[in-house]
């Protein structure tokens, strides 16, 4: 068929979906990392409360972005039903919605015993009334008996959310930039990298405890590896796009000719934090400012990645 192709980007899912993907990945990975740290590295009540809180709040905000753009908001009830997975198991949004819901449920339950042990929630009127109810006290005791099991259920769903954000984009076959195996990998690695950065910011500011030094060092090292992995995946993606379909070539041109992507995301969102963290891991820093700077840059880069990805997807229409 001789056709005159038209190449076009889309206006259906834009910045707000980038926020949904960003908050989803960041919140879920933060929850998973803090729970794993608490279970296997060093019990840390405050880290768990922050992790669960960040997970629930970020996921709620991200989901609101998607919910706010639905054409018929009442029809969302269909996918809140867990049976949606059986009815529509091929749709990643159905999976993602269930991962998000159950991550929140198990995340709140895992944090509940810690919340009850902490003084601050008892000073907040609404929360105080809630956590002192007999039903909640009983639930907290029950969760305590199966704490690790509940933690793993939250972690599994959290990892599911992080991976889902990439699988969602990968399920659109018309766009070469999205429909390739690098995307779920890239988004998952980026989600955990931003989670490490978020936790480093937290642990160098609000939760600054000298006893957690080894946890901070571990997070820095993991983040360094994750940023390196992200750079390798991006390099592979570039190689894939530059000699593939025209859709891919045009996406590559849109991204790599844009200073926001090239300097903003790859430069300041990946390479600069990588160098700052590398110096920190190899020789250390006298101050916490460089690692804080690196972490803030990684957090900003995480959003830029998703933002540019949404805008750079190119459709090839045969007319």
């Amino acid at each position: 068929m001789d056709v005159n192709m038209t190449y076009a980007t889309q206006e259906m899912w834009t910045w707000w979906l980038a926020i949904y993907l960003y908050f989803g990945g960041l919140g879920a990975a933060t929850l998973a990392v803090t729970f794993l740290t608490d279970m296997y590295l060093k019990p840390n009540r405050y880290l768990v409360i922050w992790g669960a809180g960040a997970g629930v709040v970020l996921l709620a905000l991200g989901s609101l972005m998607l919910f706010g753009h639905l054409l018929d908001k009442t029809a969302v009830l269909t996918i809140l039903n867990p049976m949606a997975l059986f009815n529509q198991s091929s749709a990643w949004i159905a999976w993602g919605t269930q991962f998000i819901i159950w991550m929140m449920v198990w995340g709140v339950l895992y944090a509940l015993p810690y919340v009850r042990e902490t003084k601050f929630p008892h000073k907040v009127p609404v929360i105080r009334d809630l956590i002192d109810k007999p039903f909640v006290i009983g639930t907290a005791k029950l969760v305590q008996s199966f704490h690790r099991g509940v933690g793993w259920l939250a972690v599994i769903n959290g990892v599911g959310v992080a991976v889902y954000t990439g699988l969602l984009l990968q399920s659109f076959p018309a766009v070469a930039l999205w429909h390739n195996p690098a995307v779920p990998l890239l988004f998952t690695v980026s989600a955990f990298s931003t989670a490490m950065a978020f936790l480093l910011v937290l642990m160098y500011t609000l939760l600054h405890d000298q006893a957690d030094e080894h946890v901070r060092v571990l997070y820095e090292r993991i983040d360094l590896v994750l940023i390196a992995a992200e750079l390798v995946i991006l390099f592979s993606l570039y190689q894939y796009l530059k000699n593939g379909s025209e859709s891919g070539v045009r996406s590559m041109e849109l991204l790599w000719n844009d200073y926001g992507w090239l300097i903003g995301f790859i430069g300041f969102g990946l390479i600069v934090p990588f160098l700052l963290e590398l110096k920190g891991v190899m020789r250390g820093w006298a101050s916490r400012v460089p690692i804080l700077t690196a972490s803030v840059l990684v957090l900003a880069g995480g959003y830029l990645l998703r933002h540019y990805f949404m805008y750079a997807g190119v459709y090839a229409y045969p007319w």
Binding site: L66, D72, A75, L168, Y317
Partner: peptide, 15 residues
């Protein structure tokens, strides 16, 4: 049944 998430529009190669 449609909630209008737009995933179908994103997936369709024929606009």
């Amino acid at each position: 049944l449609c909630m209008g998430c737009g995933a179908c529009a994103m997936a369709c190669p024929y606009h």
